[in-house]
């Protein structure tokens, strides 16, 4: 059986269909143990992830208000989104702007800080990892920023700027469209050292020292060369993982934005696709319409992921 597992490269022969089915069936039988390994996860994954996703794709072509049974409407939801829903178009613009800034920046922050921390002594590293990770571990702690940027003279930021004489009257930081987006972006970046950051740290820890030794012998002279020629190529898998997490987080951002700038932000300045989706899903109970947005958001993320994947291949 051991040989079957390692040498089961299926020959790709352009023979008859039945022949190919037979070949596949043979390969499947030879690898029965692999299916046993995959089965438990796959069962739960199908029931709670795959089937619900397929269901919502179907729902996106229906009108479904969660009370009456869904009725088929074809592409109506998609047409309405692009032709009639002006707020959705604003949300699309905001989401792309938000993602284009927070995505790359938070991704780089995750890697750079993981990389810098990695060289410190173990105890110091644990403490710093905890501190950096803190904003994402303490769920509601970002609400401290609403106190900081409170619109009256008693908000910390207004208070200081007035005291220093930089401002002569307080700014409505979270209600003024010129300031809302920058502040939201800053807060989201502040709490972005999360899943990817931890994965990068674990990944860096997993790199065998001998690679660096070999590199030093081969003439790697400074930390930048070491990073580009040794560390990054060895981290490729983790970099892709981090990229996907970052893409998902930045395109599907909603909660923090809504908590900071309210349920109906001024001029919809910080309204994102995900907030629009939640609004239709949970407030107006139009599940078909919300599902259509989920499908579009999904396609967008897949597209971006493909581009990022291509870029990551060029490393090293």
């Amino acid at each position: 059986m051991s040989s079957a597992l390692s040498t089961s490269k299926r020959p790709i022969r352009r023979t008859s269909v039945t022949n190919r089915i037979n070949e596949t069936w043979k390969a499947m039988k030879a690898n029965a143990i692999s299916y046993l390994f995959v089965a438990p996860f796959l069962l739960v994954f199908s029931v709670f992830v795959i089937i619900p996703i397929l269901l919502s794709v179907v729902l996106s072509f229906t009108y479904f208000n969660m009370v009456q049974p869904p009725t088929w409407v074809g592409f109506q939801n998609y047409l309405t989104l692009f032709l009639e829903d002006e707020v959705f178009l604003i949300a699309v613009k905001n989401t792309f702007f938000f993602a284009a800034i927070t995505g790359p920046l938070s991704y780089m922050m995750c890697f750079v800080f993981a990389w810098l921390i990695n060289e410190l002594s173990p105890k110091l590293r644990t403490v710093l990892t905890l501190l950096f990770y803190a904003p994402s571990i303490s769920a509601n702690a970002f609400l401290i920023w609403t106190v900081m940027f409170s619109g009256d003279a008693y908000g910390y930021v207004n208070g200081i700027l007035l005291y220093w004489g930089i401002l002569d009257k307080p700014i409505l930081w979270l209600q003024d469209p010129t300031w809302m987006m920058p502040i939201v972006i800053m807060v989201v970046l502040w709490m972005s050292l999360g899943v990817s950051f931890l994965t990068f740290i674990a990944g860096l820890q997993g790199i065998d020292v001998m690679y660096y030794e070999a590199g030093a012998i081969d003439g790697v002279g400074n930390r930048w060369q070491e990073l580009w020629y040794i560390t990054l190529p060895l981290m490729k898998n983790h970099l892709m993982f981090g990229a996907i997490i970052t893409i998902t987080n930045s395109f599907a951002a909603a909660g923090q934005l809504q908590a900071l700038t309210g349920d109906t932000p001024t001029d919809w300045a910080t309204w994102t696709i995900m907030q629009h989706l939640n609004d239709y899903g949970y407030v107006r109970y139009e599940m078909g319409y919300a599902s259509a947005m989920a499908v579009l958001l999904f396609l967008t993320m897949v597209g971006v992921q493909r581009i990022v994947q291509r870029l990551l291949r060029k490393i090293g």
């Binding site: 989706l277 919300a290 989920a294």
Partner: peptide
């Protein structure tokens, strides 16, 4: 391991990460 269907599972896992969980509440 190398077995038929592996690539399909791999891409299903990858893609599912990018679907907004919020609309899955009703199916759940």
């Amino acid at each position: 391991h190398d077995f038929p269907g592996k690539n399909l599972i791999n891409s299903a896992i990858l893609l599912s990460l990018m679907f907004a969980g919020a609309v899955l509440v009703i199916p759940h």
